[in-house]
Amino acid sequence: MQYMFLIYSADGSGPQPGTPEFDQLMADYGAFTKDVRDAGVMHEGAPLQGVETATTVRVRGGNVDAVDGPFAETKEVLGGYYILECADLDDAIARAAKIPTAVYGSIEVRPVLSM
């Protein structure tokens, strides 16, 4: 079963680019991605550009309304995602706990609806 892992953290809460901590974070992500690839459970995954680049689009009455900013103005913002094959929720929780952002942000785990 596929689960989506939505990686959230408060803007600026993690290590900042240019610091050794940031380099470590990148290395940890590299290692995590390698792990899930080697285990054959990786479907996809990517980091996202900063929330300041987000645009929210709605179509109302046939008009396209595009506005600056994320859908919800919250402290924690979506920073990236994975879609991984997991045996069950316990397996997914164990994977989520290994995503490097989990130690300062949060990982939302959602089963993918198979069509």
């Binding site: 079963m1 045996a87 069950d88 929720l89 316990d90 397996d91 785990v109 089963p111």
Partner: peptide, 14 residues
């Protein structure tokens, strides 16, 4: 059912 919470006794580490 939806999130597939497993039906088993957790592993020793859990």
């Amino acid at each position: 059912a939806g999130a597939q919470i497993p039906y088993r006794v957790p592993d020793a580490n859990m």
